[in-house]
Write a protein that binds this DNA or RNA. Sequence first.
DNA 1: GGCCCTTTGAAGAAC
DNA 2: GTTCTTCAAAGGGCC
Length: 473
Amino acid sequence: MPQLNGGGGDDLGANDEMISFKDEGEQEEKISENSSAERDLADVKSSLVNESETNQNSSSDSEAERRPPPRSESFRDKTRESLEEAAKRQDGGLFKSPPYPGYPFIMIPDLTSPYLPNGSLSPTARTYLQMKWPLLDVQAGSLQSRQALKDARSPSPAHIVGPFCLEFPGQADLSLHQFHLSNKVPVVQHPHHVHPLTPLITYSNEHFTPGNPPPHLQADVDPKTGIPRPPHPSDISPYYPLSPGTVGQIPHPLGWLVPQQGQPVYPITTGGFRHPYPTALTVNASMSSLLSSRFPHHMVPPHHSLHTTGIPHPAIVTSNVKQESSHSDIGSLNSSKHQDAKKEEEKKKQPHIKKPLNAFMLYMKEMRAKVVAECTLKESAAINQILGRRWHALSREEQAKYYELARKERQLHMQLYPGWSARDNYAGNYQGKKKKRKREKQAGEGNDLSAPKKCRARFGLDQQNNWCGPCSL
DNA sequence: GGCCCTTTGAAGAAC
DNA sequence: GTTCTTCAAAGGGCC
């Protein structure tokens, strides 16, 4: 597996935005690649059928066989050259070459400061920012321009890829540039508002209708609740300096990942932190409404899964607490039990901050719709098998893009939830959707009657000392 | 209604 | 340091 940064893991200091673009030249290669991928898909589909119909003791599914032959360096060089050439054509000053060879990222110096030396905004950047950060005041505070921007935004979901479809005509599938440019990479996804046209849209457009004023204006009122929205939590990002006209509107470090609605990729919540006073975030005055998140949840009103906007946020899953049962049992509980139940209840109420998606998850989210469209399979398990094979079939450069996305996502997650730990979501801590532990099941399998046969078959009767415990019984 | 399946990767726990 | 476990997404299938 390709590891970025020499496998050095997260580098919080790395703040370079790496955006991958593919021009039409590469698109041709992509087409041929897609055709091969479709062949692979057909193979996968047939193999899936075969695998399901035949015994799976065959080793035909070995990693070596699944992986396509390694791609020639010439192809990669060609791709790289194509990318670089495309980068040069995109914008004379906005893009620059990858920082190191063999890495197909086009560096955007700082999308939060996409200003030309004279202080004006690069046209491409302006378009880019309008798409990537629709709430960003790309016109340096001009209300008219903001209104124009707002009006120009189509209420149709098609606006999501609008200008970039023009930049990349004929690109029909969910290719990588669309992946990056259309903000379809969800860091968290709204579980109930998956866009019908693209499953990669994180949030529903209903919170960002053309009629909604930009959230940085005072008139930023949630259409549902009528509650004024506080500034975007990403305002507190220390990664991107303020630029003229964007004071107080620091774009998200993953601005190109942030959904168009401008909602935070990760919500600031009122609970779930083990460290109530994170220091990684610098809180400005506008973040005062978020201060409640800095305090233990018992000191603040129980917002639970409510985002600071006052609306439930998709990234937070609050477990369903059956309070009725607990209340009905109060009479039968003694005081200590009652307190325990209360504590447990509070624990259950803590919002569930999901793990950041890893590279493969990001890839899956992008490619799932494509695979579903290409084949008749609907079962996610089968789809995921295909996606897993495709993932292995990706070149290192292609995978590296997703690793980089995942790295940025982890960085963002760390920024927003300094005290969060993956352990918080373990079944023991998070009492919401409690999954049956797979290992428990497997351990149970070890206790079944077939287990002794396994050890007996494996070690034989003369090596019973090697048998596992259950088998030795 | 909730878990399983299935994938890879990240992170934490356990040894 | 290595190995194991859990969870992240997805949605049809199953109990």
